[in-house]
C-alpha cells in the first residue's frame, strides 16, 4: 500500500548471476519495462514507483530485481513458507536463465512446475537465454502437457526465448514472441488497483454521422450552458459536453 492509500503491485524479476548479467539486465529492463539506464539505476534491487501503461489502464508497481547462482536453490527458497508473504504480494515472476534440453531437463521442468503451482493467479515467465533452442522447440515445450502442470489452478509457466535468432516477430500461431510477448503477458495479468485511462472506443468503420442531429444537440447544449449561472458548473458542463461530442463524432 502506498502513502496515498493506493495499492502498489510488485513484479519479481530474477537473473542468473553470470558475466552476461549486466547486458541481460539492461536489455530486459529496457525492452520489457521501458526503463532507461540514464534515468534508472539498474543496480538497485528494488525499483519503486513505476507505472505500467496500456491503452486501457495505468497501474503503479515496484520492480524487485534479484539474482541467483543456483536456480534450484532459489526456487526452493521462494516456494518455502518463509516467502509466503512475498509471493502473496507479487503480481508475477520473470526468471531469466538458460533452459537446458539435456538430462537435467526433467528437474528444471519439475522446479518450474512446483514454482508455478504456488503462484496462483500470478503470471510466471521463464526467459530462456540458450540460443540453441529454436522458437519451434519453445512452442512445443509450451504446448507440452508437462509444462501445463498447474493448469488446475489456472496458472502455468510460459517459456519465452530471449534471443530472437530467426528475427521473426510472430510464432507459428501468430503470437508475439520475445520481449513483446512478455509485455503482452504483463498487460493481461491480474493487477490490484489501477485505473482506466480515457480511451477511444473501438468502433466499426463508419462515416455516416447524422450531422443535423449533432447540430441540434449542440444548440440544445448551448441553451442549457447559458442557463447555468454558476461559472464552475458551466465549465464542468462544457467539458462534459465536449468530451461526449468528441466521442460521438469519432
Amino acid at each position: 500500500m502506498n502513502e496515498d492509500g493506493s495499492v502498489c503491485n510488485k513484479i519479481l524479476i530474477a537473473f542468473q548471476d553470470n558475466d552476461q548479467i549486466a547486458n541481460l539486465k539492461e536489455s530486459v529492463l529496457g525492452e520489457v519495462f521501458r526503463l532507461d539506464k540514464a534515468n534508472t539505476n539498474h543496480d538497485e534491487n528494488i525499483i519503486k514507483g513505476l507505472t505500467w501503461s496500456t491503452k486501457y489502464y495505468e497501474v503503479r508497481y515496484d520492480l524487485y530485481v534479484d539474482t541467483f547462482d543456483d536456480f534450484e536453490e532459489w526456487c526452493k527458497d521462494l516456494i518455502s513458507s518463509e516467502y509466503d508473504d512475498l509471493r502473496e504480494v507479487l503480481s508475477g515472476i520473470i526468471v531469466i536463465d538458460s533452459y537446458t534440453m539435456e538430462k537435467d531437463k526433467i528437474d528444471q521442468n519439475k522446479l518450474l512446475g512446483q514454482l508455478g503451482s504456488v503462484l496462483q493467479d500470478k503470471f510466471f515467465v521463464f526467459m530462456n537465454t540458450n540460443k540453441d533452442i529454436s522458437q519451434d522447440v519453445i512452442d512445443e515445450l509450451n504446448d507440452d502437457n508437462s509444462m501445463q502442470l498447474t493448469s488446475d489452478s489456472g496458472n502455468s509457466v510460459e517459456i519465452i526465448n530471449y534471443h530472437n535468432v530467426s528475427n521473426l516477430k510472430l510464432n507459428q500461431y501468430n503470437e508475439k514472441i520475445g520481449f513483446e510477448r512478455v509485455r503482452e503477458i504483463i498487460d493481461t495479468c491480474e493487477w490490484s488497483g489501477g485505473h482506466r485511462v480515457q480511451t477511444v472506443e473501438a468502433k466499426a468503420d463508419s462515416t455516416d454521422v447524422d450531422l443535423e442531429s449533432v447540430f441540434n444537440r449542440l444548440k440544445e447544449a448551448r441553451l442549457k450552458y447559458l442557463e447555468i449561472e454558476d461559472e464552475d458548473e458551466r465549465e464542468q458542463f462544457a467539458l462534459e459536453i465536449s468530451n461526449e461530442f468528441a466521442e460521438f463524432l469519432q
Binding site: 512445443e140 504446448d143 502437457n145 501445463q148 502455468s156
Partner: peptide, 10 residues
C-alpha cells in the same frame, strides 16, 4: 477443457 485444449500441439 482448459487442460485438454492448452496441451494440444499445433
Amino acid at each position: 477443457l482448459t487442460s485438454i485444449v492448452l496441451s494440444r500441439k499445433a
